[in-house]
Amino acid sequence: MLPHLDAAYRLARWLARDEADAEDLVQEAYVRAWRFFETLRGEDAKPWLMRIVRNQWFSRARSEAGRGKMAPFEAVEAEAEAALQAEMDPDGPERRLMRLEDQALIRKAMADLPDEFREVLVLREVEDMAYRDLAEVTGVPIGTVMSRLSRARKMLGERVRRMSEEAGHGAF
């Protein structure tokens, strides 16, 4: 009856990082989209619906931050790039995450990533969406999707490794 609801919820969950906020976000998005439900069955409606969810989130975040105060994507990306440079070589190989690694640790590291990085990670790794669809959801070119996703994966891997060390699991 409600197409792509689980996918919308999973994205909202990672954007909002709070159960109640995520549910509000999904509800707002569906109320916004409800008049298209008859045409929303197909797979090609999924990116469109996800885009509504993420736009709701970003416009809400923007209005909470005060008009004009929200940094544009380029600035967020540059900041993330600088953080990545400080942490590790962004062109270096990805760290291997352990299957038996504490999943709570991975989720905690994910929660600390910038919005734009969490967004592409959940769309790609959980929803298994294609680059083309990620570009449609996020409104950036495919080349930007690829570099953003690559940085997001490396930063997540690096942070998991560091948190794991700090937590006394030792290097692996």
Binding site: M1, L2, L5, D6, A8, Y9, R10, R13, W14, E23, V26, Q27, Y30, V31, W34, F37, E94, R96, L97, M98, R99, E101, Q103, I106, R107, M110, L121, V122, E125, V126, D128, R153, L156, G157
Partner: peptide, 26 residues
């Protein structure tokens, strides 16, 4: 890593209460 993340980052399906709430509104 893709396989690990697919599991670790999946918050699960939408809660039934949310589904019911949206279905009621729409």
């Amino acid at each position: 890593n893709r396989r690990v993340l697919a599991d670790a980052l999946d918050p699960g399906a939408a809660p039934a209460a949310l589904r019911a709430r949206i279905a009621g509104i729409t």
